[in-house]
Amino acid sequence: MSAFLVTVARELRIAARNKASLLMPPLFFAIVVTLFALGGKPGDPQLAAVAPSVLWVGALLAALLTLDRLFRGDLDDGWLEQVFIAPASPVGMVLGKFAAHWLLTGLPLLLLAAPLALQLGFPSGAPLGWLLLGLLMGTPLLSIVGGFAAALTVSLPRAGLLLPVLVLPLLAPVVIFGSGAARAAQAGLDASGPIYFLAFLLVLSLTLLPWAATAALRSAFD
């Protein structure tokens, strides 16, 4: 547990010293969503219909942008190797990295999602609540699944498009059920089914992927 807290504190401290980079994911998210609105006809009711998928894909892309650097710097400056030599379990460190990634990218996106949804004409009230609940479940998944893929490609100096190609199919169910819940709520239906499925995916990946990511990082040294 202490390795977890130490890693989270370290990541937050590093982020606090580079405040401009903190703003990039939410800024990117806002610009992508705005471009969708600009690309459509002004005042088009269709925009509200596609709002859930626009918001989800926007959040996905914004989270992806930061994933490439998740472990790269730590591998280059030797910190990662020190963690694996240390007696504490490296899984705590990996979990800490994932949690910090969510705090620094997922949480700001979540906070920004409500105004952006209203900007697209998404109905406020209960549907907006379901949309945000879906994002609350789904954005940690972006950090965990994406972090696993980042661990797989950490030793590749120019992974480039490989990382998104690995991550996006794994995250397809998250987008399907996340925007599915919002669309169901929009249509006045019960949205709890897709939310339960997201919760299942979150528990599954939280219990398995930190270990898989640790194994992937360890093989970067062999």
Partner: peptide, 17 residues
């Protein structure tokens, strides 16, 4: 080749969901 196979093994296992 061995590093490739290990990374592919992890991805294949995770994707098996």
């Amino acid at each position: 080749r061995r590093a490739a196979a290990r990374a592919c093994a992890l991805l294949a296992i995770v994707g098996a969901v």
